[in-house]
Design a binder for these strands. Sequence first.
DNA 1: GTAGACGTTGACGTCGGGGTCAAGGCCAGC
DNA 2: GCTGGCCTTGACCCCGACGTCAACGTCTAC
Lengths: 142, 142
Amino acid sequence: MRIGELAARVGTTTRTLRYYESRGLLPARRDGNGHRTYDEGDVRLLEQIRTLQDFGFELEETRPFVECLRSGHPAGDSCPASVAVYRRKLAELDALIGELSAVRDQVGAQLVRAERAMAELAADAGAPGGPEPVCELKGWSG
Amino acid sequence: MRIGELAARVGTTTRTLRYYESRGLLPARRDGNGHRTYDEGDVRLLEQIRTLQDFGFELEETRPFVECLRSGHPAGDSCPASVAVYRRKLAELDALIGELSAVRDQVGAQLVRAERAMAELAADAGAPGGPEPVCELKGWSG
DNA sequence: GTAGACGTTGACGTCGGGGTCAAGGCCAGC
DNA sequence: GCTGGCCTTGACCCCGACGTCAACGTCTAC
């Protein structure tokens, strides 16, 4: 199988496959013309990469899974290194979700506050009023 | 006040201030030497920008807040355009948190599955065993 | 007068994951 | 012979928010 066929089979582009090869992730054999040649094993490797990519794994993070498959294991995550990546990713996701949730709550509170302040300003346009309290967002350095 | 002093006061760099100016976000007056000159109002604008940036707002998203302040409002979010950005950001955050949580659960499930499979393989090393079922991650295109 | 700390502009590098040419080789069918 | 489709390599482009460097001007202190 050549590069165009492989790309079509897994739903990606030839450029992407060459990029993976340049990263040492998916090396290819060559035929007499210098054209890249792939087999069914490469299809599996590529599907593993794409699946993890779809989950937000970086390309480098898919490497243990690919090497695990290439070393003969039935699944890419049948190796300690792959499981370690799972665990690291899980921790990252938990941390990120926690931070984003905190930001979400702060932004939500600011939204409520800003809407109330604007409503009061509009009401004060026809009534007596003093200075409004001004709250500030407290930064989140992440 | 010149650029270095302003940068120090809000805890950023001169490069960043010049970048903001190049984006039209924080224009500066010039003194006789061509040096940028800032006042207290610019400190407020910059603090508004930085606060929103810390919350993950893109630079362009801070523009309504800055213009709101510059037009004389007591707070950057006292304008409809700013409130609209709040709302948009809130929706984005909710969507992102939802997607990340789904991914988190899938990765967590895969982790458990992979660990169990490896434990069984280890146990099978000394006992009779057949082929293990192999589950695959189903992709999340987001 | 000279060192050092500031300022200026402009240009290029970074990170990830490729997209998009450009110039050419190889092979099939008409 | 010629067109069309596939392949090759190399090179530059994109996003965002700056970092870093070069080469130079300006101001202050000793």
